[in-house]
Design a protein around this nucleic acid. Structure first.
Lengths: 156, 156
DNA sequence: CGTGAAACTTTCAAGAT
DNA sequence: ATCTTGAAAGTTTCACG
């Protein structure tokens, strides 16, 4: 699918503020609401716009810790990987699960309320899994940027 | 701030669908739109709800690559770190920048359209920075989960 | 918290450029 | 083809009970 500059601007605006009204977007891109709606519907149908989410203030909810967890599996058979992934994606504190190339097999991003909670999470829900050989914690001290906004080029 | 079960459910719903209408939310939590609006305003003011965003389908926009980049700085003075972070957060392809404890100093999440693009990004925008000693790329092969949804406890 | 009312937004069909 | 207009339905937002 080809994005003209108006589509690109709509994507930029909705990445920045996912609750912006079509009337508002229309004004900023120099159209009326109807064609903006049509374009957004088209962008959603094409999968260019995938979903909309509120992002919560984690620390306000008591999540004082973020960490990346590098996981090495015991073996790398298809079934082994499948079962590990199936179990790990069900853990709500695991926000991300990436299969990676490198010394380790998977890189997880996890949140926890406290070191104690983190310990329980790692022990009971991760290290515990029969496929896991070893885990390494990379503790996040602070995050200077944490966004899902990708660049939508203005000059095609 | 204390979240009662209705606040928690509102947070859960808005994490799941950031464009859900207040009328819709109201129906699901068994209220009318007015009190839902009041609660959302309060949650936003308290920073529990931080922001709303559309998440784009990266691959549809040509971002075929995701990688984590572990960075070691030459030194760890306050100014050095500050200047590195200030430069790195301006790079649109760098979606996340975390200060970490471990062998490396920073962990970045970056997206790129191709290996060539990735090379340019790493060379010209990262390795290049005067504070950087060394970078290590951890290539993402696939992501089984990539979310910002944190658990909002149902049982206080 | 609910109601009702005003203002605004969404959404669609028909017609203009 | 894509936009505008205009109108109906739905949503937001407020003051009052």
């Amino acid at each position: 699918m080809v994005l003209d500059p108006v589509d690109q601007e709509i994507c930029r605006l909705l990445q920045e503020n996912g609750r912006m009204t079509f009337a508002d977007i229309a004004q900023r891109v120099g159209l009326t609401a109807a064609p903006v709606l049509a374009r957004v519907n088209k962008l959603e149908a094409a999968g260019v716009i995938g979903s909309y989410h509120a992002v919560l203030g984690r620390e306000k909810l008591g999540f004082a810790m973020t960490a990346f967890v590098a996981v090495i599996l015991k073996s790398h058979g298809t079934a082994e990987c499948r079962d590990f992934v199936a179990a790990i994606v069900e853990v709500p504190e695991v926000l991300e699960c990436h299969h990676i190339a490198g010394e380790e097999d998977y890189l997880l991003k996890v949140v926890a309320q406290s070191p104690k909670d983190y310990e329980r999470l790692i022990n009971d829900r991760i290290t515990n899994l029969p496929q896991v050989r070893r885990v390494k914690t990379i503790l996040v001290l602070s995050s200077a940027k944490e966004s899902t906004t990708v660049p939508v080029k203005v000059n095609p």
